[in-house]
């Protein structure tokens, strides 16, 4: 039998060239020959692919792929990029490590670099408690505001990060304990109500009553840490009781609860985990959040 397809050659009348027999809306495709160099280029790409398979990772094996004689891998390239970035940043990181904190703040270039570096370190290490925007939550201080329990200067912030708050593992940690005036029997419930109403009145909270009895109780029990004017004392970690910022809830009930049985926050000592340059960058970042003093 003969192949009938070759017997039915369709010759385009205008050009005299054979068509492929394909038609689209009456438009025919001429069966023009490919140039021979095109064929050689095609063979060339096949040879190229052989070289490529030898040079680069190509053949998947059971546990991994062939490595290729050039030893290239995208993971290796990433490692190199990271190493290059480390090398490129080494100089400015060294300057940050050597400079006093005040000098870093005064140098715009160092301050910008430290703020950016501190920002990424914050996301990794601090955001779990303080939040990605450092806005905190009940029991976890908002770092954007201007009220600082342990002081808002750059050195105070650095010290707090370095040694933590009430850290069990750091001898130099910041430490203070508010007595449990209720559960330890120092004050009875009526006294607690009276002093709490007085404290609430200092910042104009709902239910607050400025009463002399409460003021007396405050002077006897609270003023030692929170101060005669209730402006707090950063050295003892005693919060300002006259402002709008409350670590727990800003309400009379919350104040009564705290006086009865004190809650205490705890922050790890980061010097055990992070290097000093990173902690300095964290301090600069936190200081830049808007409330740094």
């Amino acid at each position: 039998m003969t192949d009938t397809r070759h017997d039915e050659k369709d010759i385009d009348s205008l050009s005299g060239i054979e068509t492929t027999g394909h038609q689209w809306d009456g438009i025919k495709e001429l069966n023009n020959p490919l140039p021979r160099w095109w064929l050689w280029t095609f063979y060339g790409t096949i040879i190229w692919s052989v070289g490529y398979m030898i040079a680069y990772p190509a053949w998947p094996l059971i546990s991994e792929a062939t490595a290729g004689v050039l030893g290239y891998s995208s993971r290796g390239e990433l490692a190199k990029t990271v190493a290059d970035a480390r090398t490129a940043n080494a100089d400015i990181l060294q300057r940050i490590g050597e400079a006093p904190l005040a000098d870093i703040l005064a140098d715009l270039e160092l301050a910008r670099f430290a703020t950016a570096g501190g920002s990424s370190a914050f996301k990794v290490n601090c955001s779990q408690c303080h939040g990605t925007g450092a806005a905190g939550g009940p029991g976890y201080p908002n770092l954007n505001d201007d009220s600082w329990i342990w002081g808002g200067s750059i050195d105070d912030i650095y010290l707090s990060i370095n040694h933590g708050i009430r850290s069990a593992t750091d001898m130099d940690t910041r430490f203070s304990l508010m007595p449990n005036f209720g559960t330890d029997g120092i004050l009875d419930r009526a006294d607690i109500r009276t002093v709490s109403a007085y404290v609430a009145s200092l910042s104009g909270l709902e239910g607050g009553v400025d009463n002399p009895e409460g003021a007396m109780l405050y002077a006897e029990n609270c003023a030692a840490c929170h101060g005669d004017t209730a402006k707090g004392m950063a050295e003892a970690g005693a919060p300002d009781l006259t402002d709008a910022i409350w670590l727990y809830e800003g309400s009379l009930a919350s104040i009564e609860a705290q006086v009865t049985q004190a809650r205490h926050g705890m922050m790890p000592s980061w010097s055990e985990k992070l290097d000093d340059t990173t902690i300095k960058q964290l301090a600069v970042y936190v200081h830049s959040l808007g409330g740094g003093q």
Partner: peptide, 16 residues
Amino acid sequence: RNPLYTLLSDGSIQNG
């Protein structure tokens, strides 16, 4: 975006 605003100690509001 985060935080949208911050309450300051004197009761004023700060935006970044």
